[in-house]
């Protein structure tokens, strides 16, 4: 029984890509104070849109782009509901997840007559792995730089920490929040596109299978930082990769499945270091006067 092989490493990376992109998406959204549990539905929508467009155009690149666009579309609804109309962030997220589950299943049946659609072409591999993996790594480097070293990134994060202060220096809280939520939709949508087109080579109903929530868990375990999120997503990706490869004596698969959620609770109760969410998480901006 060999756990630490090249093939396990590659499987870990493949598993980690959608999770880490969802985690980074959650991070962008929450850095502006908007909780986004619609990540799960966004991944699903991205996976579906990516599959359909890849098959319709024969271009997996267009498919991936469409997954990103679909993710942004879902995020836009979340932003309209929770930023413009100040609806509860969680409820809006729950609604979008229900919507994505229903609409992707419905359209799969209408368009193909079945609930599973195979992807007809994938991106050419570069050095043996999908180019989306390189893009994901680059996105993490860029995000780290963007959030901590650029003016706009600092403004995004300031919005999540103190909305009134951001508003008082003439920056639009609404614009910052829309930007954070839309970026999160693009990232999770990309994760969904990768999941269907590059990883599974098919779309099937409900295929996000909790990845959005594991992404959320990674974000928390990673203490709301890009590299922490990437590390946590890799750990959870590793535990997913193990589930498909080997059975470890005395550790049932189901306990590996629980791992991300158990760790998240442990982090939240302070058993594994303290994690502090952005101060304005879940709050609405109401201008005085």
């Amino acid at each position: 029984m060999d756990i630490f092989t090249i093939s396990t490493l590659l499987a870990t990376i493949r598993m980690a890509v959608p999770i880490s992109l969802a985690a980074l998406g959650g991070l962008f959204s929450e850095s502006t104070g908007v909780i986004n549990i619609a990540l799960e539905g966004i991944i699903l929508m991205g996976a579906f849109a990516g599959t359909i467009i890849t098959n319709a155009t024969g271009s997996p690149l267009l498919g991936i782009l469409m997954a990103v666009v679909a993710g942004i579309g879902m995020a836009l609804i979340h932003a309209i509901a929770s930023v413009t109309f100040k609806a509860n962030h969680i409820i809006s997220g729950v609604a979008l997840n229900l919507f994505a589950t229903g609409v992707t299943f419905f359209l799969a049946l209408v368009l193909t007559g079945g609930s599973q659609i195979s992807v007809e072409s994938t991106l050419p591999k570069f050095l043996g792995i999908s180019p989306v993996i390189y893009v994901t790594v680059a996105i993490f480097f860029l995000s780290g730089f963007f959030l901590y070293r650029t003016r706009l990134g600092l403004r995004l994060r300031a919005t999540g920490e103190h909305m009134a202060a951001v508003d008082s220096v003439g920056i639009s809280v609404t614009k910052m929040r829309y930007l954070g939520v839309l970026i999160s939709g693009a990232l999770a949508g990309l994760g969904g596109g990768f999941l269907a087109i590059e990883q599974a080579n098919f779309f099937t109903k409900g295929m996000s299978a909790g990845r959005g929530y594991i992404g959320l868990a990674s974000m928390i375990f990673g203490k709301w930082t890009p590299w922490g999120a990437a590390g946590a997503a890799s750990l959870f990706g590793f535990s997913q990769a193990l589930q498909f490869r080997i059975s470890i004596p005395f550790v049932p698969d189901e306990f590996l499945q629980m791992l991300p959620y158990l760790i998240t609770i442990a982090v939240l109760v302070g058993a594994v270091g303290r994690a502090t969410p952005p101060a304005e998480d879940g709050n609405h901006f109401i201008k005085e006067g």
Binding site: I77, I80, A81, F85, A87, N88, I91, S92, V94, A95, L96, L98, F99, T101, G102, V103, F105, F106, L109
Partner: peptide, 16 residues
């Protein structure tokens, strides 16, 4: 699944 879509729409429209 049309009704699942409708149930989700009820929720999102309601909060707005």
């Amino acid at each position: 699944q049309i009704v699942e879509i409708m149930q989700a729409i009820i929720l999102i429209v309601l909060v707005i």
